Every structure is written in structure tokens, then in C-alpha cells.
Computed example of a mutant assay.
Amino acid sequence: MKKIKAILPRNKAIIWSLILLITLLWGYAWVLMKEALEYMGPFTFSAFRFGIGAITLLLVVWIMKIGLPPKRYWKHLIIVGILQTSIVFLLVMYGLEFVDAGKSSVLLYSMPMWSSLLAVKFLGEKITPVRMTGLLIGMLGLLTILGWDIWTGQSFEVIFGEILIIIAAISWAISNTYYRLNVQELPKIQASAFQMFFGAIGISIAMLVMEWGDPIVLNVTSMYYILFTGILASALCFTVWFFIISKIDMVTATISTLLVPIFGLVFSSILLDEKLTAGVLTGSALIIIGIIIATITKKNPYAE
């Protein structure tokens, strides 16, 4: 018992270190995703990004001699790939043509709300009053960041882009739940590699249909955007994400991703000159408070 108690804090520290790493990388990636649209179409960039990410992971799987997943998992990996990679990033990248990078990240990370509802319905998880309070405070933070302009004074194009990104958030939430139900027994790097491979195929098909013949500028800057988002923000981060959601409950894991829009807004302010208003700062504070409250629980979620 003493040994278990000694291990739990270390596991908790490792999990939160990984969460901090991927949310920081994902937050920075929003800036690169927005900037990449200056060099190529949204679907073309996503095809490059996830093609590179899938190739990277498949090489690692080959080097580690993990092999192919059992045939019974292929259907599930295709579904996860379509939900988490194809749908999410086709919609997000198209929406970014109309919506600021910082605000787009806020909309996508409404995902914890949808994931929490699905986790209760399909995974049998319980949202305690404490976690519900944390989730509601975090979502209030998102609404505070978005401000009143989400309701008034926006063009049809901006509203359309925002709706696409919210649909992407729902698709990601469905993917999280589907993964937990059908795929989590696989090695995490194998699951990430093959779902990303199938997802990249879906994105490539959309790119060929929608952007065939459109100009593509490949230079040092655009290649940096592709390689960073493909290798680090995709291959590395999604493998770590699958590890996290297999180790702790869905509600805690997804609420923690509310850190991403905070990092996204900070990087957007520094690199894209998007404004950090009082509403943004207040909303960010609410998100952090919500995460802290939601992860205070008597039962240690890191004990698995």
C-alpha cells in the first residue's frame, strides 16, 4: 500500500506534464495553421500535415517491430481516423479562413463539454458535483473569451466558420468516446499511426476534389509549418493524447485541454497581433480555475 501511494503522485505528475506539453504544442500550432493558409489551401495543408504525421508514426511502428493491428480493429481505426483526423481538421482548417486563430481554438475546445456528456452516456462515467462545477466554470471562461461578438455584429462567413469548428469539436468528442470503447487495447503508437493514416487518406481525397490545381508555395517557412504540425502537433501529441485518455477518466482528460485555447490566444497575440482583451484574460482565469476545481477529487483518477 505504501508503494502504491508513493507511485500515485509520480503518475499524477507525469500525466500533467504530458498534458501541459501537448496543450502547449497544440496552442502554438493554431498560429501555424492560420499562417499556413498564406501558402496553400486549407485541405492541402492538412493533407501534408497528417501525411507527414502518419509517415512518421508508421516508421516508428516499423522500427519498433510492432506490426499491423489485428484485423478486427481495422474498421474501428478507420472510424476514429475519419472522426478525429479527417472531419475535425477539414472543418477546422476551412473555418480558419473566416475566424481568427485564437477564437477558433476556443470554439474547438468546447470539446470537453460534448465529451463529458458522451462519457456519462456511453462510458458509464459519473460527473460529480465538483467536476460539473469545474466544467461549467471552464465553459463560462470560453464564453467570456468569445465575448458578445459571437452573438452580434458578425458576418455570415464568420458565423459559418464558427459553426464548422463547433461541429469539429463534437466530432472529436465522439472520437474520444469511440476510441475508449473499441480501440484502447491497442498499443497507443500503433492506434495513433493507423488512425492518422486513414484520416490522412480522407483529407487527401477532399484535397484532390476541392483544391486540385490550386497554387502551393513550398519554402522554408511553409515547410516548417508542415513539419512542426505534422511531427510534433500531430504524430507526437495525438499519441500522447491516446495514452492520457486511456489512463485517466474522460472528463478529467478533456477538461484539461481547455488550456489549449489559453496558449492559442497568447501565441496569437504575440505572433499574429490578435488582441488580448480584458474578456480574454478573465476567461482564461476562469478556465484555469475550472480545471483546478474539476481535478480535485477524493478518488485518484491516476490509479489505473
Rank of each mutant, 00 (worst) to 15 (best):
56 T>P: 00
82 I>L: 07
188 K>Y: 10
208 L>R: 09
116 S>C: 10
148 W>S: 14
169 A>E: 00
123 L>K: 04
40 M>W: 12
27 G>A: 02
134 G>H: 01
85 T>W: 01
1 M>E: 15
129 P>H: 08
125 E>W: 01
233 A>T: 03
142 L>Y: 15
35 E>A: 14
271 L>W: 14
253 A>Y: 00
74 W>C: 01
156 F>L: 08
45 F>C: 02
29 A>E: 11
182 N>K: 14
241 W>N: 10
288 I>V: 11
140 L>Q: 08
16 W>Y: 13
101 A>R: 04
129 P>M: 10
9 P>S: 12
267 F>M: 07
7 I>Y: 14
25 L>F: 15
19 I>V: 09
244 I>V: 11
80 V>F: 02
43 F>N: 14
150 I>G: 08
70 P>G: 12
211 E>P: 06
212 W>V: 14
46 S>P: 07
171 S>N: 09
164 L>G: 02
174 I>W: 12
170 I>W: 03
289 I>C: 12
221 T>I: 11
112 P>H: 01
150 I>N: 05
132 M>N: 07
192 S>P: 01
269 S>Y: 12
212 W>D: 15
223 M>F: 03
38 E>L: 15
38 E>S: 15
94 Y>A: 13
276 L>G: 08
94 Y>P: 12
222 S>E: 00
250 M>A: 09
250 M>T: 10
77 L>I: 04
275 K>F: 15
290 G>Q: 04
165 I>G: 08
193 A>V: 03
201 I>Q: 03
281 L>V: 09
240 V>A: 08
304 E>P: 11
108 L>A: 07
177 T>R: 00
10 R>N: 12
267 F>I: 11
242 F>W: 03
155 S>G: 14
214 D>Q: 15
144 T>I: 02
277 T>D: 05
88 V>R: 02
268 S>L: 10
174 I>T: 08
261 P>C: 10
174 I>N: 02
294 A>I: 07
136 L>C: 13
151 W>A: 13
76 H>K: 05
19 I>Q: 03
296 I>Q: 15
13 A>C: 07
27 G>C: 05
150 I>E: 05
15 I>S: 11
89 F>D: 01
119 A>Q: 01
33 M>K: 09
279 G>Q: 07
84 Q>A: 12
292 I>W: 06
151 W>Q: 09
150 I>T: 06
125 E>G: 01
93 M>N: 15
89 F>M: 00
257 T>M: 04
69 P>G: 11
118 L>E: 03
142 L>W: 15
207 M>D: 14
262 I>L: 04
241 W>Y: 07
41 G>K: 11
52 I>H: 01
232 L>M: 09
49 R>S: 02
152 T>A: 13
119 A>H: 06
78 I>T: 05
98 F>D: 06
56 T>W: 00
303 A>D: 10
16 W>G: 10
253 A>S: 14
135 L>I: 11
196 M>V: 08
240 V>E: 06
113 M>R: 03
155 S>W: 05
33 M>V: 09
160 F>S: 13
233 A>P: 05
304 E>I: 07
218 L>Q: 12
193 A>C: 05
186 L>Q: 03
57 L>S: 05
289 I>K: 08
131 R>F: 08
81 G>A: 06
153 G>F: 00
92 V>H: 04
109 Y>G: 15
166 I>N: 08
291 I>A: 10
275 K>C: 12
234 S>V: 00
